[in-house]
Structures are given as C-alpha cells and as structure tokens.
Design a protein around this nucleic acid. Structure first.
Length: 113
DNA sequence: CACCTGACATAAT
DNA sequence: AATTATGCCAGGT
C-alpha cells in the first residue's frame, strides 16, 4: 500500500471534520471547503481527502469539484471507481444532469462559523 | 472549450 | 532545516 502509519495532521483532521458534517443527499465543493477552513487552496483539501484514513466516517464522495463535476476518486479521475462514486451519490438522493454534473440544488453550503 | 497560472499542505530527497 | 515534486482544484485568458 502507499503508507502505513500516517499520523493525520491538524489540517487533515480539519478537512475530515468538515466533510463529515455534510448532510446525506448533499454535496460540497473543494472551494467551499477551503473557504470554510479558511484555506485558499482546494488542492490541499483534495490531498487531505485522498489520504482519507476513515472510510464511511468521512464521505469524501460527497465532495465534488467547483464546477460541480465529480472530480476524482481514490486517485482516479475516471473509471469504475469514479463511476461508483456517482452511484453512491445517486443512492443518497443526489441527481446529475446528462453532463454528469451534480445539480446545484444538492450542493450544501457551509455555515458562517 | 483548452491551456496555463496561482495558492497551500504533505511526503520525499 | 531547506528544497523539490506532487496532488480527488479554482480561476482566468
């Protein structure tokens, strides 16, 4: 595997906490997460989610790209894994358009806190 | 619609 | 301790 004992850093924990707060049937974008974490970089968010040590605790599949595209999944930007992500969201109530984009109404915005 | 640049954190060297 | 390379991106040209 990639890395065994990887101690989650404070930043990663922050991302996991925020992602965990996403209600079922809704999705969030990396950009919004970055704003919620006061981080101007969304890539760092993806980095943290990619290292997601928690499986269903942190629903990384509920996080989509800024243009409401699925983005990537487990290091794959396309393929079965990504297809699975779309199905998971569909099962949770999230709908997509023909372009494979998440409906904006399913996007959850973070609180001001 | 395609390409390049920008901003931030982690792991590796 | 510092630098280099990479990453489930965003935004602008």
């Amino acid at each position: 595997m990639s890395d065994p004992g990887r101690p989650p850093t404070a930043f990663e924990t922050r991302v996991y906490e925020a992602t965990r707060r996403i209600p079922k049937g809704k999705v969030t974008t990396y950009g919004r997460l970055g704003k919620a974490l006061n981080c101007g970089s969304s890539q760092a968010i993806g980095q943290a989610l990619r290292r997601n040590p928690f499986a269903p605790e942190v629903p990384c599949h509920r996080v989509v790209a800024g243009d409401l595209t699925l983005g990537g999944f487990a290091g794959h930007r396309e393929g079965e894994e990504l297809r699975r992500k779309r199905r998971m969201l569909d099962e949770e109530g999230v709908r997509f358009d023909e372009k494979g984009r998440v409906l904006a109404v399913c996007v959850h915005e973070f609180p001001a806190s």
